[in-house]
Design a protein around this nucleic acid. Structure first.
Lengths: 221, 221
DNA sequence: ATTCACCGACCGACTGTCTGTCGGTAATTG
DNA sequence: CAATTACCGACAGACAGTCGGTCGGTGAAT
């Protein structure tokens, strides 16, 4: 039983299988044998296309990242959308999406206590890729007088690092209430960082899916 | 050749060896065989004291953390030290120290591209343990009118998450200049978060070893 | 004060699993 | 009908964890 395909097709088959398996069982929990079985190829074939198991992970992250960042970048450049709305949409594009309707929901099930390495690599990619995109939008906001900070990039870096660590990962166990109050504090803090008016960013709360009627018309402080 | 010791003594011998080896070669790069050789015991003995390799790491992190956090806590409670100075000292206590002069400089060489799992676990412990300590100092500062924020805890959480990710790890490659400008921006951002006067936190810059006006003298790297 | 039963600490051969390699084979292409 | 490209699967090497068994010390009983 021998099926020959174009190298890139095989590569993607392997990545697809790896994506699903890593999501289910984690990187360490997935053996190359699992991938072999799922794709239906032999050991040698896998190592013909990838030089190591880790190489598969790297390729997977790059593939996903390219797709996701591109989508966010597109949105960021669309000056027809108001700044605040655009931030919201750009961030949304990073969370789920992908475009072609296929899976690519790595972000979904990656938050396992396992996959530490994968986690780290993804975060590195995110920290590298996302802040520049958001900072460009912020800069526009500054020109429009919506924001006011000398450090748009560093602000976004801080925001992204914090949000991905606390909200996307399972670094801190939280009840639904704790989460909600963290989100409120977070938004208030971001407003300060960006020099935005108090409450001006409350509309972005919908980014944090789950519960929470956006009803929050509270004026604290 | 058979040497019998008290269980806790052996446990600590094993942890000492693991600490050094993990620091040198990383967690994945260290085999249980390496530890065995270094301590001079047999396989079975290791698994008599620890239930798995990961269990060794957990114990190691807990041991280190207990020491470090305790030191920082002590400082935080010393109301004779001015608030700003106290923050500085508490953070210093987290970085190196340990107390008894022995090693415990995990934080030193842990920042390797390897040890992802260890990294994650340490960060989790830090995120859990440090913000409460710092927040208590901040709260005092608020009473004294030095700071002004409704969210001292969340601010510290954000600060700690960001600083450990960007400055302590190698998440982002930076030149010395980039690092310096990141630090400046960071301090300015923290001042905003805490509602502190502009420039009031510049003195804490010495926390970030290396260059900067502190003249500490060490030329690392 | 000697014997003996007991138990915690210790040993190391062994097992199962996993990653990565290598020589060889089938399909494809020019 | 070469030469290249994709593929195969047996194999080597390494490693984490297990298990039956051993040894030294300690306290109780003789």
């Amino acid at each position: 039983m021998r099926v020959v395909k174009e190298a890139e097709a095989r590569r993607n088959e392997i990545l697809d299988a790896a994506e699903e398996l890593f999501g289910q069982k984690g990187f360490d929990g997935t053996s190359t044998g699992d991938i072999l079985g799922k794709v239906g190829i032999a050991r040698g074939t896998l190592y013909y296309h990838f030089k190591s198991k880790e190489d598969i992970m790297d390729a997977l992250i790059e593939r996903t990242n390219a797709t996701i960042l591109h989508a966010a970048q597109q949105i960021a450049e669309d000056k027809s959308i108001p700044v605040i709305e655009r931030i919201l949409r750009a961030v949304m594009a990073l969370n789920i999406s992908s475009g072609d309707g296929s899976s690519t929901e790595i972000m979904e099930h990656i938050h396992k206590p396992q996959n530490a390495l994968m986690h780290q690599k993804i975060q590195k990619a995110v920290i590298h890729g996302v802040p520049p995109i958001l900072a460009s939008i912020i800069s526009e906001g500054i020109e429009q007088g919506i924001f006011n900070t000398p450090y748009p990039y560093e602000c976004m870096e801080m925001v992204v690092v914090y949000a991905t660590t606390i909200f996307d990962q399972d670094m801190v166990e939280m009840t639904e209430d704790e989460r909600m109050s963290r989100i409120l504090a977070f938004i208030a803090n971001v407003e300060r960082l960006l020099g935005a008016g108090s409450g001006s960013l409350m509309s972005v709360m919908q980014m944090f899916g789950g519960s929470g009627g956006v009803e929050a018309g509270n004026g604290d402080e």
